[in-house]
Design a protein around this nucleic acid. Structure first.
Lengths: 249, 249
DNA sequence: CGGTATTTTGATTTAGCTCAACAGACGTGG
DNA sequence: CCACGTCTGTTGAGCTAAATCAAAATACCG
């Protein structure tokens, strides 16, 4: 794999500041579904959250646990994984700061249908579902925003069903790379760098294929100068052509 | 295929009564998300809907059309299909009376991301999205119910991603049969009859496989007395074993 | 009864999986 | 700073599930 540079990722720095509700929620303030709220309102809602810091690779909750909390990523990133009985994983989603996870409408009978794990060290806010329900009742704009996001996620999810059903692995991976680039990409001398530790297996679990096949395809893309990649990182050099590959025919 | 009986499906009868808003919405009254409303409220909401009757196999809207309406199935069933560029189809969902379809949160820029087609003759209610937004604002319980349903659909959709990613075709089809049986099944001397015209290709488009492979697997299931099936219909004789097949290992 | 759409079945091909070995990269402790 | 062990990624070879291609058989429709 010729000349591989040092790891180019910035790890999300918690340096100095603690992961506290006050600091973080206000500062970033832009948790998707709290957009429309006033300073006042934000403050009252804010008080219902608890903040937690997690190291990289830590499990936040497990598939099958009672679904009691709704969570929001403040710093870092979180992946949602579903484990199959035969030991395979499916990577359902990767979340950025500002995004929520956990079933917002679960009642006491529900359990989480996936496992949530930090992908970098992270700061996560939690709110009890009963409290969140009150928030949605008190501020209908929050409920609408949650509905909006959930609808978008459903659409993404259905697109993925389409891809898994009808596209060959190469196109699926090309598409995933473009999507990740759009969501997590940052300009960098190496190209559009995906700011996340991302292994071949992660990619494979997103594409519904094996790590070996993923590796082969990534090597191909690398040979064609579409990407630059090393251990746990990927940069996109030619997004238009990747897009073309994912859609052509 | 030995002894094939006459087609055992009941086609949804529109006999006599027209497909009108008043008659249908009130009578069935149980459109999922209008549950909590009073007679009064139902009546006012009701007036914003338009009713339409469609023959079997008719396209209600097409993937890519501007998403202007939200629709509810009153009688009959509707399938949501996504067409791929290479002429393959993916069957995303099949809807029963009481279920809604069309993007509830679309704004003027959105287009439908799938095609909606009647699977039987059907009566469909439509409401303009701007009106539906008002309804949700006026009756927060409606918005909550829509969110609840959308969350459930997201979870189903993710389960399907799992299956497509990691299960062999036989297990996927077994699971789909069980699911269809639960949703559309009616007791019948032949077994749990799925009350829908359902071709091998439909099943294939749900399982992300080819019609030929689907046919082979259905023949196998038939040989093992798990199902009885003819042209466009399926009855389930042994749900427990089908479930076992879908989950075993 | 003839025509069309659906389903079945067979034969062949192939994309992608699995198994296996190896090679780089990273981290750690001496 | 180097040596070692452990992950992560690469590459090869063979195998298999499922696709594709092709044809016949069956069911439905007027």
């Amino acid at each position: 794999m010729s000349d591989k540079q040092e790891v180019p990722l910035n790890s999300p720095s918690m340096e100095g500041h603690h992961c506290t509700v006050g600091l973080r929620l206000e500062k970033l303030g832009m948790v998707q579904f709290f957009q429309g709220l006033t300073e006042q309102q934000l403050h009252s809602v804010n008080s219902k959250f608890t903040a937690n810091h997690y190291e990289r690779g830590v499990t936040i909750y497990r598939q099958g646990d009672p679904a009691t909390m709704l969570r929001v990523v403040v710093v870092g990133s979180v992946k949602l994984v579903s484990h199959t009985m035969d030991g395979n994983d499916v990577l359902l989603d990767m979340l950025q700061p500002g995004e929520f996870f956990g079933n917002p409408m679960a009642d006491s009978k529900h359990v989480y249908s996936e496992t949530a794990e930090t992908q970098t060290s992270a700061c996560i806010l939690s709110i009890r579902l009963s409290d969140f329900r009150e928030v949605m009742n008190g501020y209908p704009s929050v409920a609408m925003s949650v509905l909006d996001i959930t609808t978008d996620r459903l659409n993404e999810s259905r697109q993925r069903i389409q891809h898994l059903s009808r596209l060959p692995v190469k196109k699926r991976i090309a598409h995933i790379l473009v999507t990740l680039g759009n969501k997590f990409g940052e300009k960098h001398r190496l190209g559009l760098l995906i700011q996340l530790p991302l292994s071949r297996k992660d990619l494979a679990d997103m594409a519904g294929t094996s790590a070996e096949t993923t590796s082969r395809i990534m090597s191909q893309f690398q040979d064609e100068d579409l990407i630059t990649s090393g251990r746990q990182w990927i940069a996109i050099n030619n997004k238009p052509d990747l897009l073309r590959i994912s859609a052509e025919d």
